[in-house]
């Protein structure tokens, strides 16, 4: 057949997948932002500020990396911010009660994961649309946390525990190492495991994925559990950094986390995106917010800018889809 001869005769050439090209564009954007900020502000290039940006980006990335998997599977998890609040407060209580940071860490990770599993069950088994299920969960968690804390603050944790949030190693904040670790682990999971590939397939077409023999329900529960566990991780780093737990600790982070994932090139319609892209997305968003800060823009502008970015990112993604 003439058609097949074309295939056989095609010369192999350097191939950059669309994902890679997208990430390169975003890296360039991040670089450009750095250059602009370095020019227009005096303090941007100071070591302190750079480390500050990296640390802030890392907190955002923990949350956003778990959320990336959810969005890859074609869903959304709006409960991550509230999950941080509950997990941080539980972890704080356990550390205070037992004096053991290890038990506290387990409590934070455990509660985060449990919340995620509940989300997964609602989405996969009860077939509640993910944005509604996790939105309901947001308020359940929010209420539980406030009720549990009763307006109190828990503070003062062992120095060893505080290291994971505010410590340094070789002059670089510990959370940055953690971020790189989770970046590697998340990328490996998504790109190099069968489960990761199946999650992409589910997001791209859940019906076809089911008819390919992928156990869709189990993978979805796993994805939401991961997202919850990453909220647990974020809660611990937050706790260690702030050295105090309050009910509203992660509340303002949901929208930025969604924004970071969408800036990173993941599609809200599922099946497209990478954990590395989200990493770059978290960097870009942090740079924007940092720049506004350095330029003495009132912090009140932050949710507004983040909201506009979310809508813009989704819109650009939809334009891109319509073209292909």
């Amino acid at each position: 057949m003439s058609m097949s001869s074309q295939t056989a005769g095609a010369t192999p050439r350097l191939h950059l997948s669309k994902d890679v090209v997208q990430v390169i564009y975003r890296l360039l954007a991040a670089g450009l932002l750095c250059v602009v900020l370095a020019v227009v502000t005096d303090s941007f290039l100071s070591t302190n500020n750079i480390l500050n940006v990296l640390r802030q980006a890392s907190l955002l990335f923990f949350l956003a990396s778990g959320l990336t998997l959810v969005i890859l599977s074609g869903g959304l998890d709006l409960s991550v911010g509230a999950n941080i609040g509950l997990s941080a407060c539980l972890a704080a209580t356990v550390i205070k009660a037992t004096g053991s940071p290890v038990l506290g860490t387990l409590a934070g990770l455990g509660s985060g994961t449990l919340v995620g599993v509940c989300n997964g069950l609602m989405v996969a088994k009860l077939r509640i649309p993910s944005f509604i299920a996790t939105y309901g969960m947001l308020w359940v968690l929010h209420g539980l946390t406030y009720y549990y804390m009763g307006g109190e603050t828990i503070h003062g944790f062992p120095p060893g525990f505080r290291q994971i949030g505010s410590g340094y190693f070789l002059g670089i904040p510990i959370p940055v190492y953690l971020m790189l670790g989770f970046l590697a682990a998340g990328t490996f999971f998504a790109q190099r495991t069968v489960w990761g590939q199946q999650i992409y397939a589910i997001g791209a077409n859940p019906v076809a994925a089911r008819l390919c023999g992928i156990p869709v329900d189990r993978r979805l529960i796993l994805v939401y559990a991961f997202s919850g566990a990453m909220a647990g991780v974020a809660s611990l780093v937050f706790l260690a950094r702030l050295n105090s737990a309050e009910g509203d600790i992660g509340e303002a982070l949901t929208l930025p986390a969604v924004a970071a994932v969408l800036i990173g090139g993941a599609s809200l319609f599922g099946g497209v995106g990478t954990v590395f892209g989200t990493f770059v997305g978290a960097l870009i968003l942090t740079l924007v917010l940092n720049g506004m800060n350095l330029l003495a823009v009132n912090a009140s502008w932050q949710p507004l800018v983040t909201g506009v970015i979310v809508v813009l990112a989704v819109w650009l993604d939809m334009i891109g889809r319509r073209r292909t």
Partner: peptide, 27 residues
């Protein structure tokens, strides 16, 4: 018109409205 799913579209405008509320009131 843009066919953005309602929950994201309004999540974005939520951020915008919240930000404007902080700005007009200066907190």
């Amino acid at each position: 018109s843009l066919r953005i799913p309602p929950f994201v579209a309004t999540l974005g405008t939520l951020g915008v409205a919240q930000g404007l509320a902080l700005i007009v009131s200066d907190g």
